[in-house]
């Protein structure tokens, strides 16, 4: 018998994996991949809550996920454009070498 807890557990594990990837990767594109995984796990959690909801507004979960996907697409486009722009000016996208603001 699958319950809400099963789906939430998968969502949590996926979120924390994404968090570790986003915090620890050296390459900016790797960090972006971690963020995408985190957004995906949040979508999974929202859909799971919507599916097991008792209230009348179950469609709210679906609508939220639609907006999250839209914002994720916009975010990916801007982040990758930033990565290309940063590579052009600094010849690197490694986040620990981008220390221009350090005095």
């Amino acid at each position: 018998m699958l319950t809400l807890e099963h789906f939430l557990t998968v969502g949590v594990l996926l979120f924390c994996l994404g968090l570790v990837i986003a915090l620890s990767k050296r390459n900016a594109i790797g960090v972006l991949m971690g963020i995408e995984l985190m957004l995906n796990s949040v979508n999974l959690t929202l859909i799971a809550f919507s599916r097991f909801s008792t209230g009348p507004a179950e469609i709210a979960g679906h609508a939220f996920v639609a907006f999250v996907i839209t914002v994720a697409a916009a975010e990916a486009a801007v982040a990758l454009a930033l990565a290309v722009a940063v590579y052009r000016s600094r010849q690197t996208v490694e986040v620990d070498q981008l220390d221009l603001l350090r005095s």
């Binding site: 968090l19 620890s24 620990d96």
Partner: peptide
């Protein structure tokens, strides 16, 4: 730049994740 290695913060990051 296709290298996908971690920074020195990988230990604390894994700790936080767990």
């Amino acid at each position: 730049i296709r290298d996908n290695s971690e920074t020195a913060m990988v230990g604390p990051a894994i700790l936080l994740g767990v």
